[in-house]
Structure formats: structure tokens, C-alpha cells
């Protein structure tokens, strides 16, 4: 298999890699770029643990090819905090104990940030539908929903 050379931007920094033509972006991030925040829960688009944004659009990185992101802008969980300063969603997830094993957490945070960008004041139902592509086997979702509501409140300055 001939490698594909790709130049892209990850969390604001230029990144270059060579990948196989059928290699998922998730594998590129984890194995070639050393960004292991995005997790592989299923590899088939069902669990959302691999969520990232590509040009601002929320996607499952297991269902994107590395070869596709030439010239695109990728945001992963590694770029969410501002240095040592956690993003409000990250802080609220800790405060509300919205995680146990934490495997699903990077995906939930990226998906929740994308949700709040489109809708700063979502209802509980909108949050649950908005995060339906993210599965969590530990928390039972309630604490995640509360954390997102609380973070949304803080981010709105309410």
C-alpha cells in the first residue's frame, strides 16, 4: 500500500503525516501523532469515544480517513484546556463526577462543546438528543447531563 502524505492543522498547530489510504483518522491521531485522548470504543461510529471536529464539524474520527484531512483543521480533546486552565465543561465534569472510568469522557466533552456552540441554552432533552451519539457504560448519563447544563449556565454568564 502506498502511503498518503497529508498536511493538516491539529489544535492550531501544523501537523504532517504519512498514512495508509484506508487508515482511520483516529489511528493517525493516536498512533502517528501521539494524541491518545480520542479513544476507540467501537470503530464503527456507534459510541462517539473518538469524537473530534474537522473544520468545526463534529465527527467520529474512526469514520474519517486520515487521507481525507489534507488542509483541514482538526480539534481534539488535547486542545480543549487553555494551558493549565480547564475548559468550563471539563471543570464541571469533575465537579459533578460525570465520569467513572473516563473512556467516554473526551468524546463527551468534544461533543458537548460542539452542542453548546450551536445552542448556548439547550433543554435537557436537547442535551440528551445532542449527545445520543456518545455512549457511557458507567455513569448512567444523568451526571453528564447535569454537568453540561451547569457548564452551559456558566458559559452564558447566567
Amino acid at each position: 500500500m502506498a502511503g498518503v502524505h497529508v498536511s493538516t492543522t491539529v489544535n492550531g498547530d501544523p501537523a504532517e503525516f504519512v498514512c495508509d489510504p484506508d487508515e482511520p483518522l483516529l489511528d493517525v491521531l493516536r498512533n502517528r501523532l501521539g494524541l491518545t485522548g480520542a479513544k476507540e470504543g467501537c470503530g464503527t461510529g456507534d459510541c462517539g469515544a473518538c469524537s473530534v471536529t474537522v473544520d468545526g464539524e463534529l465527527v467520529c474520527s474512526c469514520l474519517v480517513l486520515g487521507a481525507e484531512v489534507e488542509g483541514r483543521k482538526i480539534e481534539t480533546i488535547e486542545g480543549m484546556a487553555d494551558g493549565d486552565k480547564l475548559h468550563p465543561l471539563q471543570r464541571k465534569f469533575i465537579e459533578h463526577a460525570a465520569l467513572q472510568c473516563g473512556i467516554c469522557t473526551p468524546g463527551f466533552l468534544i461533543a458537548a462543546r460542539a452542542l453548546l456552540k450551536k445552542n448556548a441554552n439547550p433543554t435537557e432533552e436537547e442535551i440528551r438528543f445532542g449527545l445520543a451519539g456518545n455512549l457511557c457504560r458507567c455513569t448512567g448519563y444523568d451526571k453528564i447531563v447535569r454537568a453540561v447544563q451547569d457548564a452551559a449556565r456558566e458559559m452564558r454568564g447566567a
Binding site: 461510529g45 462517539g48 465527527v59 445520543a132 451519539g133
Partner: peptide, 9 residues
């Protein structure tokens, strides 16, 4: 079709 993630694609 699918989730928000799937809708992006």
C-alpha cells in the same frame, strides 16, 4: 440518520 457525529458526514 445516526447521531450528530454521523450528521456531520
Amino acid at each position: 440518520i445516526g447521531s450528530k457525529q454521523v450528521q456531520g458526514r
